[in-house]
């Protein structure tokens, strides 16, 4: 009897191995381990926010601070300023969000396919280059001594003093928005171009028969065809309200524009790396992540309520 049971176990074990489920698991485990190691393991570091962190010490040796770092965060002299800059930059990016759709609509109106492709190829180029190079580009165009813009304008006598938009606190918000748009416009338009291609061409033919002109076709066929894509992207963007990214702000940061350009991502870097206050920097990071998750959840709920399907 006992022998039988053992044999059954052995047989089912064999079957399990043969069915390939073991292979599947063997393929999945290393991938899952990598995911956990680089996405979830660092979450353990959130505990730093609750201790008076000192490198080299064990948590048991550090002072427990509770939520002190979180209250300390709001008392930082710059904090209100940083939040204002973050919201202003996000707000300006938000205002430019229809531009890629307009780009796609106008591009679709061009008759020659080759010209359309050529424009797409050239305008997506800035997306593929690094922020470092974007900085190099703007530096070389606008630099005070050698930059081409200043040299030409001075030579033509259009300006008396060289312009220095990279160090002008009055326009820095718009300048950075412009740079961001320059880098991303061509690329962001791709998704709308795809959406326009998937609109049934018969709709346009029918409209032509009914005597609709270019503007009417855009208004009544193309735009309604893009609305759902636009709204989905907009709702997804809400989750990024506090994430302006680090690279652009790190590279274009300088003492003159500092007050206007320090966003939350830069603040986290400055507190954590430059000032080595690990606990405070971690607390701000936690605040940012949790707030983003809250926003995206709300956006998802709104999407579900309004159109019956979520965005996540």
């Amino acid at each position: 009897m006992r022998f039988m049971v053992n044999r059954n176990v052995a047989r089912s074990k064999n079957r399990w191995l043969l069915s390939g489920k073991a292979t599947l698991l063997l393929m999945a485990v290393p991938c899952f381990v990598l995911l956990v190691a680089f996405v979830y393991l660092p979450l353990w570091g959130w505990s730093i926010a609750f201790f008076d962190y000192k490198a080299g010490l064990k948590f048991s040796q550090m002072d427990f601070m509770g939520f002190k770092s979180f209250t300390y965060m709001f008392k930082q002299p710059n904090f209100a300023n940083v939040i204002r800059n973050t919201l202003v930059m996000s707000g300006l990016y938000f205002l430019t969000s229809p531009v890629p759709a307009i780009f796609a609509i106008l591009l679709a109106e061009m008759n020659s396919k080759r010209v359309r492709q050529w424009i797409q190829t050239t305008t997506t180029l800035p997306y593929f280059i690094s922020w470092v190079l974007v900085y190099a580009v703007f530096f070389s165009l606008f630099s005070v001594g050698d930059g081409i813009v200043n040299t030409l304008l001075l030579n033509f006598g259009w300006i008396k003093q060289p312009l220095n938009p990279l160090a002008n606190p009055h326009i820095v918000w718009f300048f950075q928005t412009g740079i961001y748009l320059w880098k991303n416009l061509g690329f962001s338009a791709i998704i709308y171009i795809a959406a326009i291609t998937s609109i049934d061409p018969e709709l346009y033919d029918a409209a032509s028969v009914d005597g609709a002109g270019r503007l009417n076709k855009i208004k009544h066929i193309t735009v309604p065809g893009l609305v759902s894509t636009f709204l989905t992207l907009l709702l997804l963007g809400i989750g990024n309200l506090l994430n302006n990214g680090f690279e652009q702000y790190y590279l274009f940061y300088n003492a003159i524009v500092a007050d206007k350009i320090e966003v939350l991502d830069y603040f986290i870097y400055r507190i954590g790396i430059t000032m080595s206050d690990y606990s405070l920097s971690t607390a701000i990071g936690i605040f940012k992540t949790l707030f983003s998750i809250l926003l995206i959840t709300v956006a998802n709920m709104i999407a579900k309520r309004v159109r019956g399907s979520g965005i996540i």
């Binding site: 660092p42 570091g45 990071g285 936690i286 998750i293």
Partner: peptide, 13 residues
């Protein structure tokens, strides 16, 4: 949607 943030990432690495 989740990011541990700069310092936790830095220390974990």
């Amino acid at each position: 949607y989740i990011s541990a943030g700069l310092i936790p990432w830095f220390i974990t690495m």
